[in-house]
Amino acid sequence: MKRYVAFTKKEFLEQLRTYRMLILFSVFFIFGLMSPLLAKILPEILSGMDLQGMIITIPEATAVDAYAQFFKNMTQMGIIVILLVFGGVISNELTRGTLVNVLAKGLGRHTVILAKYTAMVVMWTVALVFSGLINQGYTMYLFDTSDISNLIFSILCLWLFGVYLLSLIILSSVLAVGSFGGLILTVVVLGGLLLLDLFPKLEKVNPIYLSSRNMDFITGVLTPSDALLPVLITVILILANISASIVLFNRKRL
């Protein structure tokens, strides 16, 4: 346990000193702030444009639009930032050989995987809460938020999807070789899941559900009970990814 805590602390120090923490929090801060702002000013900009006499009527923006912007940013740019910030967490150590000293000291390989995953999940959680709070504050400043439902649940779904994505990064990095192998494999798997999401029959057994139906929960089209199966599937996949990573990493030749 002491060893696990020590390695997790090292991960945080690494994220801090390699500026990855700064990047993650800056970007998530900007998402939280820009989403309500964009929702507010986009209609004003559009209506201000002179489209050769065409009159376009754009409804006044509401809090729903602000959340729509937030989830759009998070599930597009946000995922890219997560991949850039965490994509090298294992590959960098394997290609540079920094784990050799650590493993030669008898630190269990499962401890390395679990400590890294813990640090990643904690960073993602804190960054998401931080971004969500800023978004909430500014949305309340600009809009009336009375007709919003299931906001926390919707964000929890996004959080669980992120936790799944991080487990996928770990498994891919253990499987693939080279500095970018893990990152590429993660992107390929994500692409595959997005394709599967096109089949309505399969949408509920796909973690993508948790990152694509967020607005349906907020507008009340879907209720949390609709997400029961996807949540269950995603939790199982997370556990499977991490177990497989540990088993494969134990056998990996260094």
């Binding site: 500026y19 700064l22 990047i23 800056s26 801060f29 900007i30 702030l33 820009m34 702002l37 500014y138 400043y141």
Partner: peptide, 23 residues
């Protein structure tokens, strides 16, 4: 009305720029 947005954004942009330039 938009000052509470503009100031933090400029601040973050500025911090990121300075930190990368120094590094």
């Amino acid at each position: 009305e938009y000052l509470p947005f503009i100031i933090p954004i400029i601040a973050v942009e500025f911090i990121l720029m300075i930190v990368s330039l120094v590094h």
